[in-house]
Design a protein around this nucleic acid. Sequence first.
RNA 1: GUAGUUGUAGCUCAGUCGGUUAGAGCGCCUGAUUGUGGUUCAGGAGGUCGCCGGUUCGAACCCGGUCUUCUACCCCA
Length: 454
Amino acid sequence: MKIKPTIPKGTRDFGPKEVYKRNYIFGTIRSVFEKYGYQPLETPTMENLETLTGKYGEEGDQLLFKVLDSGDFLKDVKPDVYESKDAKKLSFAIASKGLRYDLTIPFARYVVMNQNEISFPFKRYQIQPVWRADRPQKGRYREFYQCDVDVVGSNSLLNEAELVQIYDEVFHKLGVAVTIKLNNRKLLAGLAEMSGVSDQLIHLTVAIDKLDKIGAEGVTKELITRGINPSVLDFLIETDGMENREKLAKIKEHLKNSAIGLQGVAEMETVLNYLDMAKLYGANVEFDLTLARGLNYYTGTIFEVKANAAEMGSIGGGGRYDNLTGMFGLNGVSGVGVSFGAERIYDVMEELGLFPNTVARGTMALFINFGGEHERVALGYLQKLRKAGISAELFPSDDKMAKQMKYANAKNVHFVVFVGEEELKREKITVKNMLTGEQNELVIEQLITLLHQA
RNA sequence: GUAGUUGUAGCUCAGUCGGUUAGAGCGCCUGAUUGUGGUUCAGGAGGUCGCCGGUUCGAACCCGGUCUUCUACCCCA
């Protein structure tokens, strides 16, 4: 039976060229993480479903990929659940594992499980794929990588400043001009309090988060349908576009009767002060009161990164969560972390042509195969190159020269090496630079020197 | 979950009003060229027109379903 080869919706293959580019991004991110003292962590692809459910809101639960139990999993399903044909109920009866939805919850689970071995503050990074069962579209896939960096067990706002520095340095190294937006959930809570809608904080933040998308009118409409007085909006519009410090002064005045609001003001001020000392490479830092972010476990500073020159959703985000480990029974551990959206960074860099040519560098040297004795001699030279740390290969059969040369071309080989009749006699090799077409007869030691310089 | 969109050669895409043998460019293979690729010329291979069903004398084309692609909404990286 012949079946058409396909891959599941929202997933992708990565060919050699793509993997080179992706590794360039991952490598850059990893090196910066390590430079700031973060250590690697990896967790299983699957978590127990109870670890995952209820952490991402109702919508999030819908987007979890569940893993079917092994064996005769229908045996113990209660008849009423089975008969009800309620897919949601049934799925929890026959699946007790799920694919991870992000890296933060597994991290929290890890911290609680290993709390006796970990010395706090614990700084970890994690670069692994996550899975979400939603509809794919631009910049959204069902399988994608996240690069998370978090520190738990420290309340210091130095951590917040450090994460901004990490964002700045990574995007500086990748050549992507970005704006790092900052806000603080306590400020949003203060705004809600001043409007007398503290209990509606989530709806308020979701609505104002859309300001740049649907405009003031749209947000006003949404607030009214939620029963929230839209006058909050006036203040946001009034302060929009102000300098960070000016905006901070304004909101300090506005929230002077809100204890939690003033705390947010103080935190934001501290973070901005630290950043003044930090001397960033070039990222634009913007205090943006309309930044809200969906995940409801954030409690303090929140972050979001956007590329300045590309139409793309956020390419990174994160925030402080005061009690993430509380849901697993460990209270009083505050953490803060951010995530890099590697796939979107890839798309932005592709769009803007920011990948250096060197990321897809092919094999340095290819030996043309002339068969027989020539092949054996070439094999010896080949190993000398490899021992010298030069990537080299010998064409595996003595096919026609044109075919071998075409192979070299397609693979972006930099130098082609000939060991034929003449070379064999003189104990030399002929090397051809595939870019310039230039050709020279050398001894093997000279070739090694040449390739080391290239 | 809602709405639109896409699917034809390995790739990018044409394909008229439903008509008999489904095309192009690129790529691939062979030769011109038995030690030189990226240029040129000649020839060749390669198709269940996403899949299932319907209408019709006849379907790549019309209708229904389904899968898929991309996009917007919700939500999110």
